[in-house]
């Protein structure tokens, strides 16, 4: 079981670990996965008044690939609009990190985490329907 260089890099030097204030109206929080399944991701985005993601933070309980997937997406979403961030696909994450088939679910979870964070932000701003 060998990890790719990129997975190892994100695992050893995770980007944007931490938390934002979940009660801040400018912050959207996504919490996905389950402890019983062995992975849980918390992804938070801070959105500027003009709708740009200006900061992102994550915390992940999971294997190296799960940690790397969530670390990577915090890098990717920064500077994007909500609509742009919502287009990030798990396949791009898996491809970038060279995840083996047994680890694809880690990239799926990372995609779910972005969507959940965007959904949470939009719900706070009465845009719940627009997100669907």
């Amino acid at each position: 079981m060998a990890y790719s260089e990129k997975v190892i890099d994100h695992y050893e030097h995770p980007r944007n670990v931490g938390s934002l204030d979940k009660n801040d109206p400018g912050v959207g929080t996504g919490l996905v996965g389950a402890p019983a399944c062995g992975d849980v991701m918390k992804l938070q985005i801070k959105v500027s008044p003009d709708g740009i993601i200006e900061d992102a933070k994550f915390k992940t309980f999971g294997c190296g690939s799960a940690i790397a997937s969530s670390s990577l997406v915090t890098e990717w979403v920064k500077g994007k609009t909500l609509d742009e961030a919502a287009t990030i696909k798990n396949t791009e994450i898996a491809q970038h990190l060279a995840l083996p088939p047994v680890k694809i679910h880690c990239s799926v979870l990372a995609e779910d985490a972005i969507k959940a964070a965007i959904g949470d932000y939009r719900a706070k701003h009465g845009q719940a329907k627009a997100a669907e």
């Binding site: 999971g62 294997c63 190296g64 799960a66 940690i67």
Partner: peptide, 11 residues
């Protein structure tokens, strides 16, 4: 508790 085994093994 709170640390997944494989993630830990990698560390």
């Amino acid at each position: 508790a709170y640390v997944e085994g494989e993630g830990l093994m990698m560390g």
